[in-house]
């Protein structure tokens, strides 16, 4: 599904990713953990193609395609979805309109016919249940005036509608109370399929109580310094990141 080899990237001339190698297979959930400033969010943004980051080396293959050679919208149309750490507000554009435009952009790219507003509403009704929302949310402007938790839920709703092959969740758990966290986690779990994969970027272990990962990787100083099973997350919870970052520093 996703094959990252020795990926390096800079932002504003500063090297942030210093050689990431990571393979994610279909059906797997990988958690990317690490202290602040370790490059977690940068990795997520680079995979989605954010223009503020410059890839300086390495390769990323997604479903056999050179991901780094694709425009951000082409990546999205090919099934790469990024749930933003800070979802953007678009005043005056309703959630329904935005979601349908995104959904139809993907369909058009796949050579399918666009869905008309009525059929799309039927589809939405199903997806709204996942995040325990009523239809009134659809007439609100995209994220405008939403609370932090509502914005994150809205990301999950978009993900549910777009049914990505590769979902990247960038600190979707941060700033959520426990109820909202459960709703988000349930949404993600419900969308797990044998032919899709999830990359969870998180600072804390608590999300992993709800979404159980197949692999856990610890990022420090722009490199993966440790990989393991789900038990690694628990160890981190207990011991913090310092013992790993110190070790990484010693290696560097």
């Amino acid at each position: 599904m996703l094959d990252i080899k020795n990926l390096t990237a800079t932002a504003g001339g500063t090297e942030i990713l210093r050689g990431i190698t990571l393979t994610v297979n279909a059906g797997e959930v990988h958690a990317i953990m690490g202290p602040n400033g370790s490059g977690k969010s940068t990795l997520a943004q680079v995979l989605a193609g954010h223009p503020s980051y410059e890839v300086t080396g390495g390769s990323v293959t997604y479903k056999g395609q050179d991901l780094l050679d694709m425009e951000p919208e082409a990546r999205a149309q090919a099934g790469v979805f990024l749930a933003f750490q800070y979802p953007v507000e678009i005043p005056g554009v309703t959630n329904a309109y935005f979601l349908r435009a995104a959904y139809n952009a993907k369909r058009t790219a796949q050579g399918l016919e666009e869905l008309d507003p009525m059929d799309f509403l039927d589809l939405l009704e199903e997806k709204l249940k996942l995040v325990e929302w009523g239809p009134e949310i659809m007439s609100r402007a995209v994220n405008a005036g939403f609370s932090g938790g509502e914005k994150k839920r809205n990301e999950i709703l978009q993900m549910a509608v777009l049914e990505p092959s590769l979902a990247i969740l960038d600190e979707t758990d941060s700033g959520l109370d426990i109820d909202a966290l459960k709703i988000v986690a349930n949404g993600v779990n419900a969308l797990r399929r044998p032919d899709s994969a999830t990359l969870l970027v998180t600072h804390y272990q608590r999300l992993l109580n709800h979404i159980v990962p197949d692999r856990v990787h610890v990022l420090a100083g722009g490199r993966i310094v440790r990989s393991g099973g789900k038990e690694l997350a628990l160890e981190l919870e207990e011991r913090g990141y310092e013992w790993l970052t110190d070790a990484a520093g010693a290696v560097a």
């Binding site: 149309q77 990024l82 933003f84 979802p87 005043p91 005056g92 995104a102 993907k106």
Partner: peptide, 29 residues
């Protein structure tokens, strides 16, 4: 900003559609 446009692009919309959507939303009233 580039962030607003990038958000739309990440949802599969091209730059032209993204700007048009953002600006029209702004002028809706």
């Amino acid at each position: 900003g580039e962030d607003q446009i990038f958000y739309c692009k990440q949802r599969g919309l091209d730059t032209e559609d993204a700007i048009s959507m953002i600006v029209n939303g702004f002028c809706k009233d």
